[in-house]
């Protein structure tokens, strides 16, 4: 199994969910170093693993030769985490409302809704054929 690549505050993983614990360990280690409280770390880890899952499954279509990169920046009390995949891009606005009664029993489709609830700002930069960049922000 290929190993993740870590350079300073960035981790790059092949497109397999087997690497999610590596992303989580890397992320939580850095956030603890910043002195962020555990409950917030959990919210951020939930959000980042959601977006990495999206990058692996919907972006890179689980192509093991493509990578998902996660970069962490903490400046002026704002934490900014960028997740980049190498997929075809997708329309984040084309997702049904998961809390509509008709969708409550659906097994999928809650990820972006949860991230929007837990983070202060979520920006999508979709470049078709070049991948999707998602920037998650949290004021600390």
């Amino acid at each position: 199994m290929k190993k993740p690549t870590i350079i300073e505050n960035t981790i790059k993983i092949p497109s397999s969910q087997e690497y999610l614990p590596d992303v989580d360990s890397f992320l939580e280690g850095i956030l603890r170093g910043y002195g962020i409280e555990e409950s917030l770390i959990a919210d951020i880890a939930i959000s980042v693993t959601e977006m990495v899952n999206n990058g692996i499954i919907h972006g890179n279509k689980s192509d093991i030769n493509k990578e998902v990169a996660v970069s962490i920046l903490y400046k002026n009390s704002v934490l900014e985490i960028t997740i980049i995949d190498q997929g075809e891009g997708f329309n984040p606005n084309g997702i049904e409302n998961p809390i509509d009664d008709r969708n409550l029993l659906r097994e999928v489709g809650r990820g972006i809704f949860i991230v929007n609830s837990l983070m202060d700002d979520v920006r999508f930069d979709v470049q078709y054929s070049k991948g999707t960049r998602v920037i998650l922000s949290k004021h600390l």
């Binding site: 939930i46 959601e50 899952n53 029993l105 097994e107 999928v108 990820g111």
Partner: peptide, 17 residues
């Protein structure tokens, strides 16, 4: 369970239904 994301919720829903 420390935390779960939407994958975990999806598994609970799948089991329930």
């Amino acid at each position: 369970v420390e935390w779960m994301n939407s994958t975990g919720l999806g598994i609970l829903i799948s089991g329930l239904t």
